[in-house]
C-alpha cells in the first residue's frame, strides 16, 4: 500500500465507523458491556502508542530525551495543565536537552 492509499483507506474506515453508529439500533451499541470494552480498547491502544512513540526507534528500545519530556508532560497533566501546554512543554524539554548535548 502506498502512503496515499493507506491514508485514503484509513480515512474511509474511520469515517465509515462514525456513520455506521447512526445506522445501528441504539439497543445494540449502547449496551453498557460494549461501551466498557470499547473504552478499555481505546485505553490499551493509546498506552501502547505512548510507549512506541517514547522509547522505540525502529525495532530498538531507546531511552533518550523523549523519556524526560514525557515525564515533564505527565507532571503537567497531573497538575491539570491545558493540552497544548503539555505538548509544547514536552517538545521544549526534548529540544533543550538535545541542544545542550545532555541527551540524544
Amino acid at each position: 500500500m502506498t502512503l496515499w492509499t493507506t491514508i485514503l483507506v484509513a480515512s474511509a474506515v474511520v469515517m465509515g465507523i462514525k456513520l455506521l453508529g447512526y445506522l445501528v439500533p441504539a439497543s445494540v451499541a449502547a449496551h453498557p458491556r460494549i461501551q466498557r470494552i470499547s473504552d478499555l480498547l481505546t485505553v490499551a491502544l493509546l498506552a501502547s502508542l505512548v510507549v512506541t512513540q517514547t522509547v522505540s526507534t525502529g525495532n530498538a528500545v531507546v531511552v533518550d530525551a523523549r523519556v524526560a519530556a514525557l515525564i515533564v508532560g505527565a507532571v503537567l497533566l497531573w497538575i491539570r495543565a491545558p493540552f497544548i501546554v503539555v505538548v509544547l512543554a514536552a517538545a521544549a524539554v526534548a529540544a533543550v536537552l538535545r541542544g545542550m548535548g545532555y541527551a540524544a
Binding site: T6, A10, G58
Partner: peptide, 29 residues
C-alpha cells in the same frame, strides 16, 4: 507511518481507535 509500519497495520490501528466514535454516534443519534 514514521515507524515504517505496513499499510494494513496503520489502517487497523486507526480503525480500532475510531471504534469509540461509532459508539458516540449511537448516543448522539
Amino acid at each position: 507511518a514514521a515507524a515504517g509500519a505496513p499499510g494494513l497495520s496503520i489502517v487497523t490501528a486507526a480503525g480500532l481507535l475510531g471504534v469509540r466514535n461509532g459508539l458516540y454516534a449511537v448516543r448522539m443519534s
